[in-house]
Design a binder for these strands. Structure first.
Lengths: 212, 212
DNA sequence: TAACGTATTGAACATGCGTTCAGCTTCGGA
DNA sequence: TCCGAAGCTGAACGCATGTTCAATACGTTA
């Protein structure tokens, strides 16, 4: 028996491949046999390790949420004592780009979770909303933003705007010619968000001096 | 044989029910038998009228895109000669709320189209992006907005922000307690967007005088 | 070494799916 | 009035899927 610390057991391989396939195509479109083939095992072994396809999906959900929470924790620690501000200092999608390898299945999996009608997706969104509200509060206390007359909606708006990049990633990459969830794409996306959040649409303070 | 103008043929009923079910649960989760039951016909009739389930889905796609294009045309006509400005004067989701009955399956269907990896979804997004770019150009010409150093990204950003409401509708309704795709929800959402686009996050010019 | 539990396989099974088809009904036009 | 096409049904078919299961290989433990 391979020890649990050595993370290349067949079980771990199955989960990783499932994660990748689920994120890319959605659990409904992916068959147990596809996962088994990708992990180079038999279909029977998949269900032996995870009870059922749904059990495997639940395990992937768990992994995704846990990994994401760890990332959130890292960010909070980076920022010092205060709660981490995802908006607009560091957006969520910026955090994903910076702390994850380029081929990580996590963004895609979180996207799928948010779009599914699973309970886990609802919980994830509520969690993100709480973070967004807390961040807006912090920003307001620091005098860097106004909470506005309706802080609940403002926090939701900021969150939705941020998540839009994650949800529309492929479409945006399509029309812009660059994937916004890469360093290169973020270099074009982030300044525009900063401008918008700083002064709205009316004026642009930063002169376009340096190209690329 | 009932005439084609009388739009309550079994064929039309099937398409309407399919539209509703597809929008709500996605075509993969909906079976031909469910559609047949909802339309009070036999499963055989569904495939008799549309060739196959996929043919029915394609017909729904066609209907949705066509209906949406008509709506876009209406809006352009409303605004006078110039191209319609979906941002920020009238957002897309605002247009949907105003011109569609509350129980219309169109918003949900468009959402599903945008999130599917069908070609129709990509075409729809490209179309929306073109509209967004044209609108930003118009706004810039009218001196009501700056195109910024990177107009392509700015237009994409505005579009993504707008679509976020459509994509996250249920989550937002969940945390805010009000569906943003209703008149009531829009009454809370729209002012916040206006503020953001007018002056950014820094200050709020409009005093919160009147309640409700 | 013997016993045992775990990892693993490949074939088989049950089910739900989209689809087919033969036959019945309905109804407009010759 | 009769015919033929279209609307429509219910049962059946074929297939892919998730799942089960008996059997085998292997490493650990007594």
């Amino acid at each position: 028996m391979r020890s649990a610390s050595e993370d290349r057991t067949a079980r771990a391989t199955i989960r990783d491949e499932a994660l990748r396939l689920f994120a890319a195509h959605g659990p409904d479109k992916v068959t147990v046999r596809q996962i088994a083939t990708a992990a180079e095992v038999s279909p029977g072994l998949v269900v032996h390790h995870f009870g059922s396809k749904d059990g495997l999906r639940a395990e992937c959900d768990r992994w995704a949420v846990e990994t994401f929470e760890n990332l959130l924790g890292e960010l909070t620690r980076e920022e010092g004592g205060a709660t981490w501000a995802p908006e607009p200092t560091g957006s969520l999608h910026e955090a994903l780009v910076r702390h994850l390898p380029a081929d990580s299945p996590l963004p895609g999996y979180l996207r799928r979770l948010l779009l599914s009608d699973e309970e886990a997706g609802r919980l994830l969104f509520r969690r993100l909303y709480e973070v967004s509200r807390a961040a807006l509060d912090d920003l307001a206390r620091a005098g860097r933003a106004e909470p506005g007359p309706d802080p609940a909606v403002r926090a939701a708006l900021l969150l939705a705007n941020d998540l839009a990049v994650l949800l529309l990633r492929e479409h945006l990459a399509d029309v812009l010619g660059v994937d916004p969830l890469t360093r290169e794409g973020m270099a074009r996306w982030a300044p525009e968000v900063l401008d918008l959040y700083a002064v709205g649409l009316g004026a642009t303070p930063r002169a376009p001096e340096e190209g690329a």
